[in-house]
Amino acid sequence: MTARVDRIVTSGTFSLDGGTWDVDNNVWILGDDADALVIDAAHDADAIAEAVGDRRLVAIVCTHAHDDHIDAAPALAARAEAPILLHPGDRPLWDRTHPGRAPDAELTDGQTLHIAGTELTVLHTPGHSPGAVCLYAPALGTLFSGDTLFQGGPGATGRSFSDFPTIIDSIRDRLLTLPPETVVHTGHGDDTTIGAESPHLEEWIARGH
């Protein structure tokens, strides 16, 4: 059976640098009728578990470790006996939210994850955070971009652990080289495509300065 992509939207808060904001997060579930993989366990472990259903949860993959993307990860992991995967560059952010509970395994650039006969390639795309990653499924023509790329531009870089030139380099060198028809499933908000975002790179650079 071909892997399918499901989305649920969960609501909560994002806190960093002394501020707290209400946010809605996309939680992506990739799998088939037997197995599933969760990308970003945000806010509500019960809602995510309900969406997974009776499938085996093989892993919880974190695109980065801002608290709104990982706050439900340990509870979901314990419930489903699934490992949490995170790039080590974001361990300092993770430890702010979950001190004493380490991720179970590290994500590395170029690593391949397998779910329901589908390969996901890990692309390290720092900028929004040091250990931010995107997940590319070429067979599905799909990229899970976390908070690196949105409809309309790059993820925010105005807070601690972020850097605007770095995120621009990541998007230009790692993402805009993908086929233009690639569908981008983002961490918040609506989908876009690589082709829709590519023409705006110079605008983003000018806006960033």
Rank of each mutant, 00 (worst) to 15 (best):
M1E: 09
T2V: 08
A3T: 00
A3R: 03
R4Y: 08
V5D: 00
R7F: 03
I8M: 02
T10R: 01
T10C: 01
S11D: 14
S11M: 14
S11N: 15
G12I: 14
S15W: 08
G19W: 07
G19R: 13
D22I: 09
V23E: 10
N26E: 06
N26D: 07
N26T: 06
W28K: 12
W28V: 13
L30P: 04
D32K: 10
D32E: 09
D33E: 14
D33H: 10
A34I: 09
D35Y: 03
D35I: 04
D35K: 04
A36K: 01
V38T: 02
H43Q: 00
H43P: 01
D44K: 03
D44I: 04
D44E: 06
D44S: 03
D44G: 03
A45R: 04
D46M: 05
D46G: 04
I48L: 12
I48T: 11
I48A: 09
A49L: 01
A49G: 12
E50Q: 11
E50N: 07
A51Y: 11
V52N: 06
V52S: 03
L57P: 07
V58T: 15
A59W: 10
I60K: 04
V61T: 04
C62W: 03
T63G: 04
T63S: 07
H64I: 11
A65M: 10
H66G: 11
H66D: 13
H66Q: 13
D67C: 14
D67R: 15
D68W: 08
D68T: 06
H69L: 05
A73D: 04
P74Q: 06
A75Q: 14
A75C: 07
L76S: 01
A77H: 07
A77F: 04
A78F: 06
A78M: 07
A78H: 09
A78K: 10
R79N: 04
R79C: 02
R79P: 01
E81P: 02
P83T: 08
P83E: 10
I84V: 14
L85T: 01
L86N: 02
L86G: 02
L86P: 02
D90L: 08
D90A: 03
R91K: 09
P92S: 13
P92Q: 13
L93K: 12
W94G: 00
W94F: 11
R96S: 11
R96P: 03
T97L: 15
T97D: 14
T97M: 15
H98P: 14
H98W: 15
G100V: 09
G100L: 10
R101C: 13
R101L: 14
R101P: 13
A102P: 15
A102S: 15
P103F: 00
P103R: 01
D104N: 10
